[in-house]
């Protein structure tokens, strides 16, 4: 059955005078992998941050699995537990070991027993290929490894959907693939994903929809392969010409 996971209705967001999102409509159903591209400053990060309530919006509605996060009665902390987020700069907790990074939220937020959280955490580290790094500290890992830990950390909350904000942009080129592979596995496993990236290979391979954003609006969207091969809008053509 078609299940709507994320719904944005005419979302407007501005920082003071600066209008960043100018009426975004978006509907993401279960298992979709939406790839979002667009020039710097077009509002991609801001949109992701609005989706899990890290940024408040000024107008419109954001509905996560039926819960309106713009409703003051909604407990945003509860909603965020269902939305994993991975950042460009990893943001691992440097004072905690890799395994502790992964188990912290399940223990403190979900109230899981230490042993149970540890077991889930170790399984996730196996899944991202870092079982042997459990006792290391983040600064002992390469960027690619840190980012895979960050993905494991988000997955440990057993989220229903995941947001990725340019998670490979800070990585050396030879480390990009290891992170993308983890993301591809996730996508193929049926995870609902919103992915801001300029990795067109990823968009072609596992993206179910490609979206081009500019100046706070969605300019064009469609099937990734079709859109990359034959963009309709002038601005999309220009942008794709630059990144391909």
């Amino acid at each position: 059955m078609r299940r709507v996971m994320i719904q944005l209705e005419q979302v407007h967001k501005h920082f003071g005078q600066l209008k960043v999102l100018n009426g975004i409509d978006l509907e993401v159903t279960k298992g979709e992998v939406i790839v979002i591209i667009g020039p710097s400053g077009s509002g991609k990060s801001t949109m992701l941050r609005c989706v899990n309530g890290l940024e408040p919006i000024q107008k419109g509605r954001i509905i996560i699995e039926g819960d309106d996060i713009t409703d003051p009665k909604t407990d945003q902390n509860k909603i965020r537990q269902r939305i994993g987020m991975v950042f460009q700069s990893f943001n691992l907790f440097p004072h905690r070991t890799v395994l502790d990074n992964v188990t912290l939220a399940p223990i403190k937020v979900q109230g899981k027993k230490k042993a149970e959280a540890k077991q889930i955490g170790e399984e996730l580290l196996v899944r991202v290929g870092l079982a042997d790094k459990a006792k290391d500290y983040p600064d002992q890992l390469s960027g690619g490894q840190q980012q895979r830990v960050a993905i494991a950390r988000a997955l440990a909350m057993q989220p229903d959907m995941m947001l990725f904000d340019e998670v490979t942009s800070a990585l050396d080129p030879e480390l990009v693939a290891e992170v993308l592979n983890v993301m591809k596995d996730l996508a193929l496993g049926g995870m609902t994903m919103l992915v801001v990236t300029h990795e067109m290979g990823f968009a072609r391979e596992v993206g179910t929809r490609l979206m081009f954003m500019d100046e706070g609006v969605i300019v064009e969207e469609g099937d990734p392969r079709k859109m990359i091969a034959d963009p309709q809008e002038e601005r999309t053509k220009k942008f794709l010409g630059m990144v391909l």
Binding site: N77, R80, A105
Partner: peptide, 14 residues
């Protein structure tokens, strides 16, 4: 770094 607060909040922490 403010990314630390964001990462923590995005995991559902208050």
């Amino acid at each position: 770094h403010r990314g630390q607060m964001e990462a923590a909040r995005s995991l559902g922490m208050t």
